[in-house]
Design a protein around this nucleic acid. Structure first.
Lengths: 128, 128
DNA sequence: CCTGCATGTGAGAACCATTGTCAACAGGAG
DNA sequence: CTCCTGTTGACAATGGTTCTCACATGCAGG
């Protein structure tokens, strides 16, 4: 039996207010900051439970940190500047289709993907 | 100046004998087992150095462990199975072009990108 | 309303891959 | 050969994640 507790509701609520991927640590800090404190262990459990239920999507960063995101949010990618960290959200239906097709060709199902583009923006190039 | 040491040679040699992805810990254990012992820190450093030189390709498992493998130096992406970690290398000129174009539209230069596709392979689906 | 109790919580410890530290070591240029 | 400097490795430290266990709390079924 799965219970509806203050803590789980709070964790789920965080992802309602947020775009994109966020770590369990981040969620924990956010809850603590908003006075609606929840134990770190509980955040991890809640987040994993949500991911198991298919409510959250999870990936790993290059440093091995786990990130979660509400699945239903509009899918997009990031164009990040190496110099100033400025980020532009970009959508690419072509890429989505390509990824799905490639996965299908290899008989993979439940396909998701991560994509980030890095570059140097005009301002940072001008600044040298 | 980069030196050629017994340890680095040993680590590189491990990947000559092995197919697929392997963790630093695994390489360390293998070297220790073969009597050709190398310190754990050194294995990590060697493996990262090889990855930096483009001699090894690296990914992360779902559990956050880093895996390395000798790879073709050609640019490609990975299609990774969530269940068994099986990896397929895929090339996608369309994606490369798209990424470059999107970056150009936003006046970004020196463009690079990362892309990984996740899914569940046929075998893992059958296994439940 | 209660009460029982299985389930959930949370502070802290444990875990474990990875990274940092630093004294000792060893390529290799001269 | 010698010296300089990059490299090594035992060990400690780090940091995200998971485990532990005493305590709290949803939620039926009375």
């Amino acid at each position: 039996m799965v219970r509806t507790t203050r803590q789980r509701t709070a964790v789920a609520a965080v992802f309602d207010d947020l775009e994109g991927f966020h770590s369990a640590q981040e969620v924990h800090a956010k809850l603590r900051a908003s006075g609606d404190s929840v134990g770190l262990s509980t955040v991890y459990r809640a987040v994993q439970a949500l991911a198991d239920d298919g409510e959250l999507d999870s990936i790993r960063t290059d440093s091995g940190e786990a990130l979660y995101r509400r699945c239903s949010t509009q899918h997009h990618h990031h164009l990040v500047c190496r110099g100033c960290g400025r980020t532009v959200e970009v959508a690419g239906p072509a890429v989505e289709n390509w990824a799905d097709r490639v996965a299908a060709e290899h008989c993979f199902a439940d396909v998701s993907h991560t994509l980030e583009i890095f570059g140097t923006c005009a301002a940072c190039r001008a600044a040298g």
